[in-house]
Amino acid sequence: MRLINLHPGKRGSQILAVLPFALLVVVYLAASAARHAANTSDKLLPTLSQMAAAMKMMAFTQDMATGQYLLWSDTLASLTRLVEGLAISVAISFVIGIAVGMVPYLRKLLVPFIAAFSMVPPLAILPILFIIAGIGETAKVTLIVIGTAPFIVRDLILRVEELPLAQLIKAQTLGATSWQIALRVVMPQMLPRLIDALRLSLGPAWLYLISAEAIAAQDGLGYRIFLVRRYFAMNIIIPYVIWITLLAFLFDIALRLIQRYAFPWFAGAKSQ
């Protein structure tokens, strides 16, 4: 039997999914124990107890300067920027993606520009954003929009172009206008695909957010990581990185659940 035809069962799938994480933890614990055995003051690979103590301080002890619980205030600040940036990006991308995908004149006019603009490294224009918009929230949110919108737009344009031509011809035969075709035929089919594009944009969005916070911010997860790095506080940096990863993972799960329950026909079509 060929390897490509072998499929694990439900229990096997669960074990395989957990195995890489378990191996990573085991390797880290072994490396941390070895370093601390050689040097009890080692800071590069803190022990679990050291990280737990640091996170207890960050999450449940009020900061003397601000009176806030830093982990939660940082998380709220970062999530606010992330959600605002992605919301604007999705709104812009959905309108432009459908319009350009449907209208040939717009495709000829904008597709080359969008393709070229998507190649501009967003982090390279971050200094320009800070000069134009200042170092406040506007520049950080704008960076997320610039970094994610072009790719979502390009994906939606391709998805619109892949729609069966027969659907559009039938709608026109029944007397539908371009506006009605967009509302009744194209948009309902693009909504679940928009969620897929948004899921793929979560990683880059976090990257741009953390980068912007590291350069110019007074709060946020990225700001905190780059603030404590000067003290070599790996017992805070590593848990913060894990926390960011967990938040991104939960975002992805939430989007998948929304797609599954709001558009069950789409999940069925993908499984065929």
Rank of each mutant, 00 (worst) to 15 (best):
H36Q: 14
V111H: 03
T75S: 09
I114H: 01
A52S: 11
A115Y: 13
T75D: 06
V90H: 00
A77L: 00
A115E: 14
L110M: 09
T61V: 15
M64C: 04
Y69P: 04
V83G: 02
T61I: 15
M51I: 02
L109Y: 06
P112L: 02
M119K: 12
F117S: 11
T61N: 12
K43L: 15
A116Q: 11
F60K: 07
D63G: 03
P112F: 03
A31C: 12
E84H: 01
L48Q: 07
I96W: 01
A65D: 08
L76I: 11
H36R: 12
H36G: 09
L45V: 09
S89G: 07
P46D: 13
R107P: 04
L48K: 05
I88V: 08
S73P: 02
I114F: 03
L70A: 08
S73F: 05
P104S: 07
A87V: 06
K56Q: 14
L86P: 04
L123C: 06
S32W: 13
H36T: 10
D42F: 09
L70I: 08
G85I: 03
L79H: 02
M58N: 03
L48D: 03
K43I: 10
L45Y: 08
L71I: 12
F113M: 12
M64Q: 14
G67L: 04
A116K: 08
V27R: 10
L44A: 13
W72L: 15
V26I: 15
S78T: 06
L24I: 08
A33M: 11
L109T: 13
L70H: 05
A38G: 15
M64S: 15
I114R: 01
A59R: 06
M51V: 03
F60I: 09
M102F: 11
L110T: 05
I96K: 00
Q62H: 05
A99S: 14
T40D: 15
P104G: 07
I96C: 02
T61R: 14
F94Y: 10
M55I: 12
H36L: 14
L71E: 05
L123V: 09
Q50E: 14
A37D: 15
V83D: 04
I88T: 02
V111I: 08
V27A: 15
G101V: 06
L82R: 00
M55K: 00
I88H: 03
L70T: 07
M57T: 15
L76C: 00
L123T: 05
V111F: 00
A77K: 00
G97Y: 04
S78Y: 04
D42G: 12
D63P: 05
Q68Y: 09
L106I: 10
T75H: 06
A115Q: 14
W72T: 14
E84M: 04
S49C: 05
A116E: 10
A38F: 10
V90E: 03
A37H: 14
Y105L: 10
Q50P: 07
D74I: 08
A124V: 13
M57P: 01
D63A: 06
V120F: 11
I88K: 03
F60M: 11
T80L: 09
M64G: 11
L79P: 01
G67S: 04
A52T: 13
L106D: 08
A53M: 11
P46Y: 13
S89D: 02
S118L: 02
V120N: 10
P112W: 02
S78H: 05
L70M: 09
A99E: 09
G85S: 02
A91H: 01
I96V: 09
Y105D: 09
V90W: 01
